[in-house]
């Protein structure tokens, strides 16, 4: 929780700025869309955080989003599978992708960066080839299934704001992952593995399985997220769907206090990290700046965030050293 305080502060500052300076920011429709997007990206960022905790990285998240998201309407519409066949298949495929990453990294000792960089190219390539690079959509059908992402719940007392359904899976996942990391033996082991893989191994922690598990969870969440995204937007192009999503996910996790060196994570921080990036993006659009500048702003904020984090860390380390030498 202490790790999350910084990002909560940044978030509140940007929020206040947006409320005062971005036109239409506080309209119900805008806030609804903002909540929805935050929830969707949170699913991806939580997965990224699990991998980052191990000291690894997953660059393939966006491509898995694309493959899973494109496959869903493609199987439903073009191949006329039923939703009960499609959803488990797509999720199983996502998990299998993660399993491959995990085994390549832990057994073959390949670097996570390389393995998932290849994944980034591979899965988008497959998605484009499979669909003949054609846009895939639900053609107005399957409204009942898409309601998983599209439903809105009325909140008593609020007239023009209704809670998007995507908040539910995002919150459930956040709570589960939060409990997993802080309360379970596996979570403890995963954090220990990220902190010092070798020491964890000497202590009897099954590090290879834990790391593999983290990659499985990350790809599974990316696949699940990809499905929610396509349910939400209805149709997408294989060539650009999910582009850069891995970077948003990683950026949010890092802003939220996950150290790329591994061993540190805060689920609350990750959620606020996602929210911060979403509000920023939203404000840039609303304030009428060209959306091209978005990347530059996100990059700048991320850089400021991590630089501040590093300075605080150094200050803490110096104090620690003083305390340590006194011991």
């Amino acid at each position: 929780m202490k790790r999350a305080l910084g990002i909560i502060g940044i978030f509140l500052a940007i929020l206040v700025f947006s409320i005062f300076f971005a036109e239409n920011f506080t309209t119900g429709i805008n806030l609804m869309q903002l909540t929805n997007r935050t929830a969707l990206y949170s699913v991806l960022a939580l997965g990224a955080a699990l991998v980052i905790v191990t000291g690894g990285i997953d660059l393939s998240i966006g491509s898995v989003v694309c493959l899973a998201g494109i496959m869903t309407p493609w199987l439903l519409i073009e191949h006329e599978w039923t939703p009960w066949q499609v959803i488990p298949t797509v999720l199983a495929m996502s998990a299998f992708i993660g399993l491959c990453h995990g085994l390549l990294i832990t057994r073959l000792k390949l670097q996570p960066f390389l393995v998932t960089l290849c994944g980034l190219l591979l899965y988008r390539g497959i998605a484009r080839w499979m669909t003949g690079d054609q846009s895939q959509g639900f053609m107005g059908e399957y409204g009942d299934v898409r309601a998983i992402a599209l439903a809105k719940f009325s909140i008593p007392g609020l007239t023009d704001y209704r809670l998007p359904a995507t908040v539910i899976p995002a919150l459930v996942l956040a709570i589960l992952i939060g409990l997993f990391l802080s309360r379970t033996v596996w979570g403890r082991w995963l954090l220990a593995t990220g902190r010092n893989e070798s020491a964890a191994r000497y202590s009897g922690v099954p590090t290879a399985w834990l790391v593999t598990g983290a990659y499985v969870a990350c790809s599974l969440l990316a696949g699940f997220g990809g499905m929610l995204f396509i349910f939400d937007i209805g149709s997408a192009q294989p060539s650009d769907f999910g582009n850069f999503y891995e970077l948003y996910a990683i950026a949010a996790a890092v802003l939220g206090g996950c150290s790329l060196r591994g061993g540190e994570a805060s689920v609350v921080g990750v959620l606020f990290g996602v929210a911060t990036l979403r509000v920023l993006q939203n404000t840039i659009t609303l304030a009428g700046y060209s959306s091209q500048i978005e990347f530059a702003v996100v990059g700048g904020v991320l850089l400021l965030g991590v630089a501040a984090d590093e300075l605080i860390r150094r200050y803490a380390a110096r104090r620690l050293e003083r305390a340590g030498a006194a011991a």
């Binding site: 403890r188 082991w189 070798s198 020491a199 964890a200 000497y202 202590s203 922690v205």
Partner: peptide
């Protein structure tokens, strides 16, 4: 290198080897 998690507390360092044995349904018995 192989023994300690230097940035973590003494408690975490000492309990890592046996928290699974004292856990209930894999939840750490804090």
């Amino acid at each position: 290198r192989n023994g300690l998690f230097l940035e973590n507390p003494v408690a975490m360092n000492m309990s890592l080897a046996w928290i699974d044995r004292t856990s209930r349904a894999r939840f750490v018995d804090q």
